[in-house]
Simulated assay, not measured.
Amino acid sequence: MANQMTKAQLVAALAERTGGDKKQAGAMLDALTGIITSTVAEGGAVTLPGVGKIYCRERPERMARNPSTGEQVKKEADKVVKITVAKALKDSINA
């Protein structure tokens, strides 16, 4: 990975692009994170146009292998957050 954007850098970039201040941009980012978290936790999905779709998927109970001992262990059913990347984003990266 070439370079990662931290939350502070993201807030600063958001404030610059919207013409607002960093405090408002930080509040907007926190609100967006809270909305996505609560919606996905309730079983819904959030689509961010041009970015992708964030949703929760249930994984069934399965057998897994302990990598250090090789022993087969039963892994309980669980939920995992998935992100499907939007075609527009894929195309812009591969252009």
Rank of each mutant, 00 (worst) to 15 (best):
residue 49 P to G: 06
residue 51 V to C: 12
residue 38 S to A: 15
residue 82 K to S: 11
residue 44 G to R: 03
residue 6 T to Y: 03
residue 23 K to E: 00
residue 23 K to N: 05
residue 59 R to N: 13
residue 36 I to T: 09
residue 42 E to M: 07
residue 66 N to E: 06
residue 16 E to D: 15
residue 54 I to Q: 14
residue 74 K to S: 07
residue 4 Q to Y: 11
residue 9 Q to N: 09
residue 39 T to M: 04
residue 18 T to G: 07
residue 42 E to R: 15
residue 74 K to Y: 00
residue 5 M to G: 01
residue 3 N to M: 14
residue 72 Q to H: 14
residue 55 Y to T: 12
residue 27 A to Y: 05
residue 79 K to F: 11
residue 83 I to R: 06
residue 30 D to E: 11
residue 22 K to D: 10
residue 57 R to I: 05
residue 18 T to A: 10
residue 49 P to D: 04
residue 80 V to E: 06
residue 44 G to F: 01
residue 4 Q to I: 04
residue 14 L to R: 10
residue 72 Q to D: 15
residue 67 P to Q: 02
residue 19 G to E: 03
residue 21 D to A: 03
residue 52 G to C: 08
residue 21 D to C: 08
residue 25 A to C: 05
residue 65 R to P: 02
residue 44 G to A: 07
residue 86 A to H: 07
residue 52 G to S: 09
residue 52 G to E: 03
residue 3 N to E: 15
residue 65 R to N: 09
residue 11 V to R: 02
residue 64 A to F: 00
residue 26 G to N: 04
residue 10 L to Y: 11
residue 81 V to R: 07
residue 70 G to K: 02
residue 30 D to R: 02
residue 7 K to N: 14
residue 77 A to N: 08
residue 77 A to W: 04
residue 24 Q to R: 12
residue 11 V to F: 02
residue 67 P to V: 06
residue 90 K to S: 09
residue 8 A to L: 11
residue 6 T to M: 06
residue 3 N to R: 14
residue 29 L to R: 07
residue 82 K to I: 02
residue 14 L to V: 15
residue 49 P to M: 03
residue 63 M to N: 15
residue 32 L to V: 09
residue 78 D to K: 13
residue 22 K to S: 12
residue 17 R to P: 12
residue 31 A to N: 07
